[in-house]
Nucleic acid binder design. Structure first.
Length: 913
RNA sequence: GGGCCGGUAGCUCAGCCUGGAAGAGCGCUCGGUUUGCACCCGAGAGGUCCCGGGUUCAAAUCCCGGCCGGUCCA
C-alpha cells in the first residue's frame, strides 16, 4: 500500500492555506483530511466514519438526476471546459474491459498514454457507467451502492510542454461548485486524503464528503502501474468523478438515493411489484442508521435492523421484514435501469463474455422478483425505465423493441432453468432427505438455481437448509484460475528472439495499402534472421484483422524463395521463407504474391463487410461482429444475436448482400483521426476491435458500411461477383456464425456439388437427372429386402423350433447346436432368447463366423439354468478352443480365432456337460 | 477464455457407480366402463441409448476424441 506512504506535501494546496483549511487525523478512522472546522469534525465526513446527516444541511433544493447533470456541465462549461458527449456503457474501444466503469475509461489507454490528444482540454463529461462488483449490496445500503451511475467529471491533461491546471485549481473548482452552485456551507466540506488506482493508472486523490455522503473524488493521476510497480507517466491527468446521483440525493434529501434518482418510478414499481409502503419514520431511521452498515458482514446487518427499530420505535422483526423488501424493491429499480442501458448499447445476453454480465443483472433482478413473491414481468419494469430515461439516453427508445424482446427471452430462460433445476432437486431431496452445502453449490453452479430458492423448495418438503452467508464467495472461489496468455503476434506464435530482432529494424513500407491490387514488386532486403526476411517495402499482407497472410515468391537473381507465412512485429512485416540461404541484407529481390489466392481473400473480406451491414439491417443494430476470418476458401463472420436465425432471415441477408454486389458500390479507403472518426462515424466502426493507433484506416462501402479495418479490399462491391451463405450455426449462446463464399469460389462449390451428385449417380447407377428417382427406387427395394429378410429369419427360427421339439432331453436338458448363416449377433441373441423361453429345458448354441473368427452364442431356458450355468460353460468352451468368452447364467458368448466346425463345438460342449 | 452438469420413447426422466434381455410416468392408438366428459381398467404402437474411436467374448454402462444443450465464473 504505497498510497499510505505518500508524502503529505502531495496534499498541500495553496487554496487550503488561503482559506484556512487545517489538516487533521481522524480520531477513530486514522485518516488525514482537511477541514475549516477541526473542532467540529473529528472524523472525515463520509460513511462509515460518520452517519448520514446531510438531510439537515442547507443546500440548493430538489435537483433531479438530469438537473444535477446539467448544473454540473454548465458550471464547468462556464469555466472554460468543453462539453464532450458520453460514450456507450459497453467499452467497445477497449480490449481489456467489457463495461465503461468510469469517465476516465473513455480516454484510456489511447489518450492517457499520449498516443492521441484528448477531444478537448480541459473538458467536462457526464459518463453513464456500470460496475457490477457490489451488485449484492445494491438496495440494502439505501443508495451507497448502485450498479449504474453517471460519473460527472472534468478532466485536464497536462503535457510536459502544455500545462492546463493541476491540484490547486481542481480543489478550488470543487469548493466553488459545492458552495456557489449547490449552496452547501463551505465549513461543512471535508477533503480526505486518499490514493486511487484503476485501469492501469494511479495517483493521490481527495475524497470530498459532506454530511456523511462522498460527493466527489479528485484524482491526480501521475503513475502507470506496471507489474505492481508505479512508473511516473509523462502526462499528468486531473481525473475527477462527481456522483450525479449523489448530488441529486444530497439536494433532495430523500431517505434513500433511489427516491431521488427514480422519483415517481419508485411508487409505480411498488404498485406493480406489490411491496407495501413502509412507515416514513422507519425509512428516516434507516437513513440515519445506514451509514454504519457493512453489507458484507451479517452481524452488521443485524445491528442495522436493531438500530433502526430502536430509532423508529418499532418491532425489530417488522423493521427487518420491511427493509429486506425495500432493499429488493430498490435493487429492482437499479437493475432494470442497468439492464436497459446494457441492452440499449447492444449487448446480447449470453453465457459468456459481456453477454453474461447482462444475464447476471437480469437473473439477479428476476431473483428479487421471485423473493418478493411477485408476478410482475421484468420486461414491464424495464419498459418503464426506458420511458423514464428515454430523454437522457435516446438509445433506449431507439432500441426499445430489441431490449424488451431480449428481457422477455431472459425471463423465460430463467424460468426454464429454475424449473429444470427444481425437478432434479426434488428427486434428489426425496432420495437423500437432505441438502448439503455442496448440493447448494451444485444447484447454483451447474443448474443456475440460487440457494434461496433451494431453501424455499426444500422447506416445503420439510427440510431445513442453512445457506452460508458467504455462499457466493464460496462459488467464486471455485472458479479462481490463473488466466492463460498465449504469446504471439496477431495470431501467430513467434519466438521472442525473432520479435526482438524484427522490432529493431525500420518500419516496412506497406505496398499492399498503397495499391491492394499490386501483384509484383521490387524491393531490398533490410535484414535476414534464420528463415525470416524483412524487406524495405512489401506487397505481402501479414496476418491480421481476421485476414490470412499472403503466400508467394521472393526472387533474387536466378534463385526463387517460397514465402510460407507473413506476420507483423510492430510496424515491421516479417516474411518466413522455406529456405533463406543465399539471402542477405542489401540484396535486391522481386516479390510475387499468389494473386489468385489473394484475390479470393479480398473478395471474402469485402463480402464480410457487406454481410455484416446486411445482417445489421435485417436483424437490428444490436448485431455486432464477434469474430471473423477470411481465407482463400471462405469467409466466416460471427455476429451477436439473441436467437437462432430463421431461414427467411438468412435468405434476406444473402439477398441484400447480393443486391449490394450488383449495385457495384465503390469501396473507399481513407485515414481519419481517431477522435474525429469516433464522433463522425460512431463506435460501430470498431467491429473488428479497436486498434491502439492515432489514425484509423477507414474502409467505407459507399452508403452501406463504414469500419476501421486494416485489410486489403476490392475497389468495388461488384468485384465480389456474388455471395452464397453456405453455413449458419449457433456457436455459443448469443453468437451466430455465418460462413459464405464469394466470386469464383461459388463456381468451385457448384463443381464440388456436381461431382458429389455425379458419384452418387454412378453408385446408384442412374443417368443424369435421374438420381432422385433412382434413390427413391433403391430405398423402396431396400425396404422390400428387409421384409424378405424378416421372413427368412422367421423361417429359420421355425426350423430350429421344430428341431428342438424333436430333440430328446439328456440328463434333463435338450441340447441343440447348430450352424447359422446369420452374422447379426443381436438377431441371434434375440432368436435364442425366444427359443429358450419356449423350451424351458433347452440349451441352444449357435455357431457362426465373422471374418476369420468363429462366434458361438449359447442360451438356456429357465429350468435348464438350474442344471447348467451357461456363462461359465461359455468360458470353459472358450478355454478348450483357445478362445475367450463369458456371460450370465442364462446367456453366454465366445469367439475363437479361425474356423471351428459345429461338430467340434458340439463335442466340447457335451464333454463339458 | 475457463470450470461444472447434462444428452436414453413425442415429453419428463430411471438404468451408468458395480458391463451380460431397453425401462417407468405422462402423452398417443385401440378396447372396456360411462347418457356424455373426466376418472378408472385392459391392450398396443413408439428407440441410431448424441456421434466417432478404443477396451471387452459382450458397452446405454468403462476409456479417449468430437458435437450439442444448460449453468457458473473471469
Amino acid at each position: 500500500m504505497l498510497g499510505l506512504r505518500v508524502d503529505p506535501s502531495e496534499y498541500e494546496v495553496p487554496f487550503f492555506k488561503e482559506m484556512g483549511f487545517v489538516r487533521v487525523r481522524g480520531e477513530s478512522c486514522g485518516e488525514y483530511y482537511w477541514t475549516l472546522d477541526p473542532d467540529r469534525f473529528r472524523e472525515p465526513q463520509d460513511v462509515p466514519c460518520v452517519d448520514y446527516w446531510f438531510d439537515s444541511i442547507p443546500s440548493r433544493g430538489g435537483l433531479s438526476v438530469s438537473d444535477a447533470r446539467r448544473v454540473f456541465i454548465d458550471f464547468f462549461v462556464r469555466r472554460g471546459h468543453t462539453y464532450v458527449p458520453p460514450r456507450p456503457v459497453v467499452a467497445r474501444w477497449r480490449e481489456d474491459l467489457y463495461l465503461t466503469i468510469a469517465s476516465i475509461v473513455v480516454f484510456q489507454p489511447h489518450v492517457t498514454s499520449g498516443l492521441v490528444p484528448p477531444p478537448a482540454n480541459p473538458l467536462v463529461i457526464s459518463q453513464p457507467s456500470i460496475r457490477l462488483e457490489d451488485i449484492d449490496n445494491v438496495g440494502l445500503t439505501l443508495g451507497r451502492h448502485l450498479t449504474s451511475f453517471e460519473m460527472a467529471a472534468h478532466h485536464a491533461f497536462n503535457y510536459p510542454d502544455k500545462h492546463i491546471y493541476w491540484k490547486d485549481e481542481t480543489v478550488r473548482y470543487a469548493y466553488e461548485f459545492f458552495t456557489k452552485e449547490l449552496g452547501i456551507p463551505g465549513d461543512l466540506i471535508v477533503f480526505k486524503e486518499s490514493w486511487w488506482e484503476g485501469g492501469g493508472n494511479a495517483g493521490p486523490c481527495f475524497e470530498v464528503a459532506v454530511g456523511g455522503l462522498e460527493l466527489a473524488t479528485l484524482v491526480f493521476m501521475v503513475y502507470k502501474v506496471v507489474d505492481g510497480r508505479y512508473e511516473e507517466i509523462p502526462i499528468k491527468i486531473v481525473d475527477t468523478g462527481y456522483g450525479v446521483e449523489r448530488i441529486s440525493w444530497f439536494t433532495q434529501k430523500t431517505p434513500t438515493a433511489f427516491h431521488a434518482i427514480y422519483g415517481n418510478l419508485v411508487e409505480k414499481f411498488r404498485d406493480i411489484i406489490g411491496v407495501d409502503r413502509p412507515d416514513e419514520l422507519l425509512l428516516k431511521a434507516a437513513f440515519k442508521a445506514a451509514g454504519k452498515l457493512e453489507p458484507k458482514d451479517p452481524a452488521s446487518i443485524e445491528s442495522f435492523y436493531s438500530r433502526v427499530s430502536s430509532i423508529a420505535g418499532v418491532d425489530v422483526e417488522y423493521a427487518r421484514r420491511t427493509l429486506v423488501n425495500e432493499a429488493r424493491l430498490y435493487s429492482l429499480l437499479d437493475h432494470t435501469k442497468t439492464l436497459a442501458l446494457m441492452l440499449g448499447d447492444g449487448i446480447v445476453p449470453s453465457n459468456a463474455g459481456e453477454g453474461y454480465l447482462a444475464r447476471l443483472v437480469a437473473r439477479r433482478a428476476l431473483r428479487q422478483l421471485r423473493l418478493l413473491g411477485s408476478n410482475a414481468r421484468l420486461s414491464d419494469l424495464v419498459d418503464l425505465q426506458i420511458s423514464f430515461w428515454g430523454g437522457d439516453f435516446p438509445q433506449l427508445v431507439e432500441n426499445r423493441s430489441y431490449i424488451l424482446e431480449a428481457v422477455e427471452l431472459e425471463e423465460s430462460r430463467f424460468k426454464e432453468s429454475i424449473e429444470r433445476g427444481l425437478r432434479v432437486l426434488e428427486r434428489e431431496v426425496r432420495r437423500k432427505g437432505s441438502v448439503s452445502v455442496g448440493d447448494l453449490i451444485k444447484y447454483y453452479d451447474s443448474m443456475g438455481v440460487p440457494p434461496e430458492i433451494v431453501a424455499e423448495v426444500a422447506s416445503k418438503m420439510g427440510i431445513r437448509v442453512e445457506v452460508p452467508h458467504n455462499f457466493y464467495s464460496m462459488v467464486a472461489a471455485m472458479h479462481r484460475a490463473p488466466p492463460t496468455i498465449k504469446p504471439g503476434y496477431a495470431g501467430i506464435e513467434v519466438e521472442e528472439s525473432v520479435a526482438r530482432w524484427a522490432s529493431n529494424l525500420g518500419a516496412t513500407r506497406k505496398l499492399y495499402y498503397e495499391n491492394p491490387y499490386l501483384k509484383e514488386f521490387e524491393s531490398t532486403i533490410a535484414g535476414v534472421m534464420g528463415n525470416y526476411v524483412v524487406l524495405d517495402s512489401t506487397a505481402f499482407y501479414p496476418i491480421g484483422g481476421g485476414q490470412v497472410y499472403d503466400v508467394g515468391l521472393l526472387i533474387a537473381g536466378d534463385r526463387v524463395y517460397r514465402v510460407k507465412r507473413v506476420f507483423l512485429v510492430g510496424d515491421v512485416v516479417v516474411h518466413e521463407v522455406e529456405d533463406a540461404s543465399g539471402l542477405g541484407e542489401g540484396i535486391k529481390v522481386r516479390g510475387v504474391i499468389d494473386w489468385r489466392r489473394r484475390y479470393k481473400i479480398m473478395r471474402h473480406h469485402t463480402a464480410t463487410h457487406v454481410i455484416l451491414a446486411a445482417a445489421r439491417r435485417v436483424l437490428g443494430p444490436h448485431v455486432w461482429q464477434a469474430g471473423a476470418e477470411k481465407t482463400e476458401e471462405k469467409g466466416r463472420l460471427d455476429i451477436t444475436h439473441h436467437k437462432p436465425l430463421t431461414e427467411e432471415e438468412v435468405r434476406r441477408i444473402e439477398e441484400l448482400a447480393n443486391m449490394v454486389v450488383d449495385e457495384r458500390r465503390p469501396v473507399k479507403v481513407y485515414y481519419m483521426d481517431r477522435g474525429e472518426a469516433e464522433s463522425k462515424l460512431g463506435f460501430t466502426i470498431y467491429q473488428g476491435g479497436a486498434p491502439l493507433v492515432r489514425t484509423l484506416r477507414i474502409v467505407e462501402i459507399e452508403g452501406w458500411d463504414v469500419e476501421a479495418c486494416g485489410g486489403t479490399h476490392l475497389a468495388n462491391t461488384g468485384e465480389i461477383g456474388g455471395i452464397k451463405i453456405v453455413n449458419v450455426e449457433r456457436i455459443q449462446d448469443g453468437v451466430i456464425r455465418l460462413e459464405y463464399i464469394a466470386g469464383t469460389r461459388v463456381v468451385d462449390r457448384v463443381e464440388e456439388l456436381e461431382m458429389k451428385l455425379g458419384s452418387i449417380a454412378s453408385i446408384v447407377g442412374a443417368g443424369r437427372g435421374q438420381e432422385v428417382e433412382r434413390v427413391k427406387a433403391l430405398a423402396s427395394s431396400l425396404e422390400g429386402l428387409e421384409v424378405t429378410l424378416k421372413a427368412y429369419r422367421s423361417l429359420w427360427l421355425k426350423a430350429l423350433r421344430e428341431e428342438l421339439a424333436r430333440t430328446s432331453p439328456v440328463k434333463g436338458v435338450r441340447i441343440l447346436v447348430v450352424e447359422s448363416p446369420e452374422r447379426d449377433r443381436s438377431f441371434i441373441q434375440e432368436a435364442l432368447r425366444r427359443l429358450t423361453e419356449e423350451f424351458a429345458d433347452s440349451l441352444v448354441a449357435v455357431v457362426y463366423s465373422v471374418g476369420d473368427q468363429t462366434g458361438v452364442e449359447i442360451a438356456c431356458g429357465s429350468s435348464a439354468t438350474r442344471i447348467v450355468n451357461v456363462g461359465s460353460l461359455a468360458r470353459s468352451i472358450a478355454e478348450k478352443l483357445n478362445g475367450r468368452g463369458g456371460g450370465s447364467e442364462s446367456y453366454g458368448s465366445l469367439t475363437v480365432k479361425g474356423r471351428v466346425d459345429v461338430e467340434r463345438v458340439k463335442e466340447v460342449l457335451e464333454e463339458l456337460l
